[in-house]
Design a protein around this nucleic acid. Structure first.
Lengths: 334, 334
DNA sequence: CACAATAATGTAACCGATATCATTTACCCG
DNA sequence: CGGGTAAATGATATCGGTTACATTATTGTG
């Protein structure tokens, strides 16, 4: 592979001149520029950007820790990150962590070992163990109030509250909840919103109306079947994501329940499929791409201007009403 | 940031000894090793891996050109790539190309400029313009026979043929096709399989039974509505991917058609939703993660052993029969 | 104990670019 | 044409490691 010295040699100039020709063209005379450019073409010279990055100490690379890259919501977030990063000349180094802290810590090391400039974490966990200084990190999507860095999220509490209120306004008084993983802050926040909405409406929270899931369709399907076993069947189910809602609907249909006539189902995320399933899902729309975009933008900001303090960005949600939710029927006892 | 010289100084040894302590531990005496390790801990030394990579000329990075990272199929492929890469100490640098050749060429440059070791392309296009030597590239998923490198794909022709035969075996004689983008080899290959199956069964291919899509649910939905306008409505529709099938089903349901009683619908890809939609979709299962895994494995092989010639890997598909396809009803004329 | 063989450590070149500083060349004007 | 300034170019240190080779210390053996 040709390097800058070969080019300089062939062009009959010094390496400095070659570098200048490429970097600050106006500092070199037309005559030399032509000689140099000719040599570059002749040798098919490509500057070794690894050397440049090493020299400059800037990698123009951002590590993205994603719990599950195959998840449709995260996939959209990634897409947003990519677009924003590219427009600033940055690259995204993608890691599918599967929520494993060892993996996360391992890739966080890439920042500490100068292989990446910063990191975006889509889960509420700080992968930097005993790091001193301002964390070159943005925490998005699932975040804790106490996060030691800039966060980008939406008000999960308010969104869940708003959806629960929607169900209550339809006359539902017995509303089940399909939760996400116990330890997830998202789940805590959404659960909190659900509880407060019930409470404000004078309804009592019933812990037997909570069903666990891991946010997958299959776990939603299982939860749906559990709901069918209830002595008093709820007339509505609020699912903490669309996948579980879709799974639950499948379970209900298998038992010849009509959605929403017999039971209303609401989701969260507004994934693309939610408007193509039957019935189309009432859900909370999240600006997924914007999560990625904003995270990258904030990170680059942080990297360039070390003074930026940790900000708390809240993106807006939207209640999308479709036909999976409807007026409450009379309560049914099994 | 502490560097190797600082460590050497504090430990009272040469930089070479520090390097050896980290690299070839057994070459250094226990006493010095302890001194060095102590200095490393004291200074919280992290070797600058950018420098290492620069020196070694190996980046341990693979660029992945993905047409659409938010697509559920590609997301699974990416997941497979990530896993395999991580197990070999490689990182995946993800690019969302949106099929843009300029973008692709730009990132291919990363290989030529020593920022990445190799590239995986998930589309039938060679992003290396005038590259001399063995292409450090694997082309997966959508490939051409003439691809100048190792390819990983499945037999789209055979899969489409097999699905069409399945529909024919159910008694369907008028089978519509929802195609993908015109220029896509995938579409050509699947179309070919569809045609041959019809021909072998003595059925004539009818070009008015072909409907275009861009593989999105919304385009499938539109195609579904077009199908309903046919003077003689087909009794079955073979969709070149699951998303269009799901969109088409929505259109049929809106017109009070029963799937599969009035019209059978088959998809391709076996995305996760295909078993949760109503009715669950008959489709072709592709080993998505394996595409990613195999591509990475083959690429690393290629990078380590330059002698490997371009191979053609064909992964297996599977016809997954669910309830969106059924016995053909009598033909209906609008 | 002397000397060879081996182990441990040090010195310094090197990877490929950039940037500072020194030097040379070009240009302008009296 | 000389002197001064600006423009162009060159020589070289540098980034932070690795490694070939040189040197020194240690061990073993006759």
């Amino acid at each position: 592979m040709a390097n800058i010295r070969k080019v300089a040699e062939l062009a009959g100039v010094s390496v400095a001149t070659v570098s200048r020709t490429l970097q600050k063209t106006d500092k070199v005379s037309t005559k030399t520029r032509e000689k140099v450019m000719h040599a570059i073409r002749t040798l098919d010279y490509q500057p070794n950007l690894m050397a440049v990055k090493f020299r400059s100490g800037k990698t123009l690379t951002i590590v993205a820790l994603v719990p599950d890259v195959a998840n449709v919501f995260f996939a959209r977030v990634i897409s947003g990150m990519q677009t924003e990063a590219a427009s600033h000349g940055y690259s995204i180094l993608l890691v599918n962590t599967l929520g494993d802290e060892t993996t996360e810590a391992h890739y966080a090391k890439m920042v500490q070992t100068s292989q990446a400039d910063g990191l975006i974490q889509l889960r509420a966990y700080n992968p930097f163990v005993d790091y001193n200084g301002v964390l070159p990190m943005i925490n998005a999507c699932e975040v804790l109030e106490t996060a030691p860095c800039t966060t980008v999220t939406l008000d999960n509490y308010a969104a869940a509250k708003s959806m629960t209120e929607h169900l209550i306004s339809l006359g539902h008084t017995k509303i089940a909840l399909i939760k996400g993983p116990q330890q997830s802050p998202l789940t805590q926040q959404r659960l909190h919103g659900y509880k407060d909405a019930l409470h404000n409406a004078g309804l009592t929270f019933d812990s037997s109306m909570m069903f666990a899931s891991d946010f997958s369709m299959s776990s939603g399907y299982l939860a749906g079947h559990q709901i069918l076993q209830c002595s008093t069947r709820p007339t509505a189910v609020f699912c903490e994501n669309d996948e579980t809602a879709i799974g639950a609907i499948k379970a209900f249909k298998e038992n010849n329940l009509q959605v929403p006539d017999d039971i209303s189902v609401a989701g969260f995320d507004n994934i693309e499929f939610s408007q193509y399933c039957d019935p189309p899902l009432t859900t909370i729309s999240q600006p997924a791409e914007e999560f990625g975009q904003t995270s990258v933008a904030m990170l680059i900001n942080l990297l360039q201007d070390k003074t930026t303090k940790s900000a708390k960005v809240i993106l807006p949600f939207e209640l999308v009403m479709r036909s999976s939710t409807g007026i409450a029927p009379a309560l049914t006892t099994n």
